[in-house]
């Protein structure tokens, strides 16, 4: 029976407990007939079943008649799905209490493989904050599968909802290493720890390689003659980096090739202490060491290179080091 309107004012007016419930005790007892019954029985078994029409179409969910002609359907039941294609959808950013899911989700028309018609069901796209916009992955044509309830009773709710096919898995990957830098690098860093920049002179080409590798990459021979280089040098070429990086203080930062005085090749380092747009090829720079008490066995002892104020080196003198 409808409730008495006169009773409403006694309520607070806020959405509290309903003051009237219409519920047929125990639920209606409906007979389903052979076609829907077959479908629901199969559904309870975890299978999707359609039925073929005389024209050859497969209806899903199955009904007893051809919706186009009214003809009886044939008695031929066909397994379909369980994978299906979304033919249309709507997105529910704030679900109602009656909805099957309590987080944003889609309603979708889903046509299982092997069927010619579609089923309406909920489509769970994952975890979203209330009010979320439709996710980009939600689209017509997407492939979905049913998420079955563990306890099934023979109802459409035996499928809790559909969900996208698995298209990606996250694969955490972590390996632990105990690395050593190697003898040449160890020796180089030992120098850096003492505020010295060390290189090796190659016996064959006579060039000084810094940081040394214990061999000359060009001549393929071992090197051992140590040479200490000054902290001054020349910028040969550089990039102005506008993409932030944790290894640099700010954006833009300049990564430059620096030819240390006396070295045969350049090394890559940060240039600072000057606006990025004033860094030049040929600019003279010196190493800016951190305070001695902060020194460790690391290249971080040199904070960056900064201008010396000397005149630029002519391009001709650096062009062979590019």
């Amino acid at each position: 029976m409808p409730s008495d309107p006169a009773s409403v004012p006694f309520d607070s007016g806020k959405t509290s407990e309903p003051n009237h419930v219409l519920e047929f005790p125990g639920g209606y007892t409906r007979s389903v007939g052979p076609v829907i019954g077959r479908f629901l029985s199969d559904l309870r078994d975890g299978r999707l079943t359609g039925v073929r029409t005389k024209a050859g179409r497969v209806l899903f969910p199955p009904v007893e008649y051809d919706p186009d002609t009214g003809d009886d359907v044939t008695g031929e039941f066909v397994d379909v799905g369980p994978i299906g294609t979304v033919t249309s959808w709507s997105w529910v950013p704030n679900p109602r209490k009656t909805h099957p899911l309590d987080r944003p989700f889609a309603w979708a028309l889903i046509r299982p493989d092997g069927a010619d018609t579609a089923l309406l069901h909920a489509l769970d796209m994952g975890v979203f904050e209330p009010g979320a916009k439709p996710p980009r992955a939600l689209r017509t044509g997407m492939r979905v599968r049913p998420r079955w309830r563990a306890e099934r009773v023979g109802g459409i709710g035996d499928i809790e909802c559909f969900q996208p096919e698995v298209t990606m898995i996250t694969a955490p990957s972590r390996l632990e290493y105990r690395l050593q830098g190697g003898r040449a690098l160890d020796r180089f860093l030992e120098g850096i720890e003492q505020g010295r920049i060390l290189g090796h002179r190659c016996d064959v080409c006579g060039q000084v390689i810094v940081p040394m590798k214990g061999l000359c990459p060009k001549d393929g021979v071992p090197t051992s003659e140590e040479v200490e280089l000054p902290g001054t040098g020349t910028v040969t070429t550089f990039a102005v980096n506008n993409l932030p990086d944790p290894r640099a203080p700010e954006v833009p930062f300049v990564s430059a090739y620096i030819l240390l005085d006396g070295a045969g090749l350049t090394m890559l380092a940060l240039v600072a202490g000057v606006p990025a747009d004033q860094v030049r090829m040929g600019m003279r720079v010196r190493a800016a060491w951190r305070p001695r008490e902060e020194w460790t066995r690391s290249m971080a002892n040199i904070r960056w290179f900064e201008p010396t104020g000397e005149p630029d080196v002519p391009f001709d003198e650096i062009k062979d080091y590019l």
Binding site: Y177, L179, G181, L185, L189, T236, T237, F238, A239, V240, N241, L243, D245, R247, A248, S255, A256, Y257, L268, A269, L270, M281, S298, M299, A300, F315, L322
Partner: peptide, 24 residues
């Protein structure tokens, strides 16, 4: 590794100085 202090940010960071050198 822990011993490398490269300031190269991706391939672009590596190749930009060489392009600048070509232009010059």
């Amino acid at each position: 590794g822990p011993f490398t202090t490269s300031l190269v940010v991706g391939a672009g960071g590596y190749f930009a100085p060489h392009i600048r050198a070509y232009m010059r």
